[in-house]
Design a protein around this nucleic acid. Structure first.
Length: 297
DNA sequence: GGAAGTCAAGTCTCG
DNA sequence: CGAGACTTGACTTCC
């Protein structure tokens, strides 16, 4: 079991998610932004290693406009050395990496253009992880997509498009239950048909449940991950009191987290804390879990 | 220097 | 039918 947080470290004083407006596009602006983002990613990973946080989600904003037609630069080649150094840092510490393309990535869209752009976006994410020479345990997590007024054909389209993906994407792609449309049971049904691993999201499961208790949910997911996929991943959060249903907690609720840890035995899982205050809560969670045998190196 | 408006991309829900 | 939400703020303009 590893514990981590997504994308941005609040306290470190830099962000690896810097970007700019499309109107401001230039190769120089692009290169300087990428350089800064990679430098900040390095610093962030160093912080994480120092604090024992060995799970991290790299922001999709790392390479701005990576899959946009305006960008025909060979960023993977230009920054190959930086990517390799980052990869060495990750491997040397036993860290686990994930990425989460944003809501525009919908491989099951009935609009072919949307689907094509989505595959390009997935290619970008795989290229980042490949440039770092990550193995197949570094995952790219997406939601199943839209329903488009007809679940059955939307799920069928997901299967067709999934099977057409390149091996470079397919070895990394996992699907996550979402808070409105596709439940854990839906994701598991898709997994039975195409073999895609299922990542469990605790808060989405509270909002949009197919009825499984925590341990049962983790057991279902665990069966969808093979050896080369690594330890199953879980997105953990709790509901922010008084906020919109599904809103992520501002800071960790240690009682709720403790209950999750207890309920999740004996299933091992790497835990991504989707909590607004990021590394602050991750450090508290790690301390709270320190007697858990699954945390042993 | 700080506040306000805007930003590559899609879909769904709510008011 | 427009705004807000998503995993999430950062950039740009205007004062």
């Amino acid at each position: 079991m590893r514990i981590g947080y997504p994308c941005v470290n609040i306290g470190i004083g830099c962000t690896s998610a810097r970007t700019f407006r499309l109107r401001s596009w230039s190769p120089e602006r692009f290169r300087s932004t990428v350089r800064e983002n990679l430098a900040c990613l390095s610093r962030t990973l160093g912080f994480n290693i120092d604090h024992g946080l060995l799970f991290f989600r790299i922001t999709s904003d790392l390479i701005p406009f990576a899959s946009h037609p305006v960008n025909d630069l060979d960023w993977q080649g230009e920054f190959a050395g930086d990517f390799m150094e980052i990869g060495d840092l990750i491997r040397g510490s036993g860290m686990r990496i994930s990425m989460h393309p944003d809501q525009f990535t919908l491989i099951n869209s009935p609009d072919e253009g949307v689907a094509v752009r989505s595959v390009r976006e997935l290619e970008y994410h795989a290229a980042v992880l490949d440039a770092m020479d990550m193995d197949a345990t570094a995952k790219i997590q997406v939601h199943v997509g839209g329903v488009y007024g007809d679940r059955e054909s939307a799920m069928g389209r997901f299967l067709d498009r999934y099977r057409d993906l390149s091996p470079a994407i397919r070895r990394r792609l996992v699907i996550e239950n979402d808070d409105r449309l596709y439940t854990l049971a839906d994701c598991c049904a898709l997994s039975r048909d195409c073999g895609v691993p299922v990542l469990f999201d605790t808060l989405h499961h509270e909002c949009n449940s197919s009825g499984e208790e925590t341990a049962a949910a983790l057991a279902l997911c665990a069966r969808t991950w093979r050896g080369t996929d690594g330890t199953p991943m879980t997105d953990y959060s709790s509901q922010e009191g008084g906020a919109r249903r599904g809103a992520h907690a501002r800071t960790i609720d240690l009682a709720h987290f403790g209950a999750f840890l207890a309920a999740s035995h004996p299933h091992d899982t790497d835990i991504m804390l989707e909590i607004k205050d990021k590394e602050k809560s991750a450090i508290l969670a790690l301390a709270a879990a320190k007697t858990d045998p699954r945390l042993a190196p």
